[in-house]
Design a protein around this nucleic acid. Sequence first.
DNA 1: CACAATGTAAAGCGTTCGTTTTACATCGCA
DNA 2: TGCGATGTAAAACGAACGCTTTACATTGTG
Lengths: 182, 182
Amino acid sequence: MDKRADIIACAASAFEADGFRGIGVDKVLAPSGASTRTLYKHFGSKDGLVLAVLEERHRLFGAHLEAAGKGADPVATLFETLRQWLAEHGARGCMLLRARAEYAAANGEIVALVRRQKDEFRQMIARRVEAALGWKDAGLATQIWLLFEGATAAASVADLSVVDEARAAAHSLIEAAKSHRP
Amino acid sequence: MDKRADIIACAASAFEADGFRGIGVDKVLAPSGASTRTLYKHFGSKDGLVLAVLEERHRLFGAHLEAAGKGADPVATLFETLRQWLAEHGARGCMLLRARAEYAAANGEIVALVRRQKDEFRQMIARRVEAALGWKDAGLATQIWLLFEGATAAASVADLSVVDEARAAAHSLIEAAKSHRP
DNA sequence: CACAATGTAAAGCGTTCGTTTTACATCGCA
DNA sequence: TGCGATGTAAAACGAACGCTTTACATTGTG
């Protein structure tokens, strides 16, 4: 019975739906049934909870990617995992970037955390691009990353097929790169 | 001396820096020197001001695109205008999508407005893709859109060169499309 | 001049915010 | 058995919130 993990999981849904600044701690805690006292024992502050939620969110999506494996096409797997994630959690834009934007002027720790997480994410994509291509291509890796972030953002105002379109674009770019340095 | 426009312009900067829910009307009005009374005369509510800011933001970026013209490469112009915009206004993610996310559960009118604006934006991209290609390609237009949204989001946690990378990717995709149906 | 429109200045409305505090229940372990 | 750790319940804190109101200054136009 890990109350801390329970609070984080329920809080993530609440923040996802109402934003971080737009919801109070009482409503954030309501789904988990925890009291405010327990919140401040575990996290110290609302911002502390936000940090924990972001870390867990990043870890969980990474775990999904690991579980999906790299398969024959490690880049396509990226977008298939994204589509499945969005179908399950709802498409409201990247929670990490949303938090960064809402706390840009209010909490530098959150800004720094998200920057670190995105750097890590980019490196993971670069590794997959190298596996698909046979050699490193930093520019191509960035382009795949942009398609990923674009699909995540766009899915909040369009249907999930944009993720398939991103996957197709990534495939085109990789094929073009292959033909230029075979 | 258009006080209404002045309030909107100053409020846009304030919302950009602190988010929409994370800042009070007093601080939003401070840069323009307007009183809360003037705010409620003009916009009726804080949410009304947000709607006006979003409409102006969408209109202004469209005007920048118009001013830049379509040139020889109407799609490249898209990304060059974006880079210039981000350099001038700062890269904190698309303000429209940020508002949509913050008001997803609180204000359906804002959600609907942003959806309309993004649909309009996609159609403008589709027209540019058709001009560059010589024929319509809805899938390709969506892919270019994803690169645009991806670059806008990514620039908040990376440097502005990601916009150039997005432009390069768009160029690759268009060249590939040309060669497949010449 | 008079009047309507438009603005600022500032106090105050009730509500909600993040946070702290007091009081009490439950459980694993020495 | 007893005690510390961990939890809920609920009240209360000052501050900030969105918004309203009263009072007064400025300005363009009949």
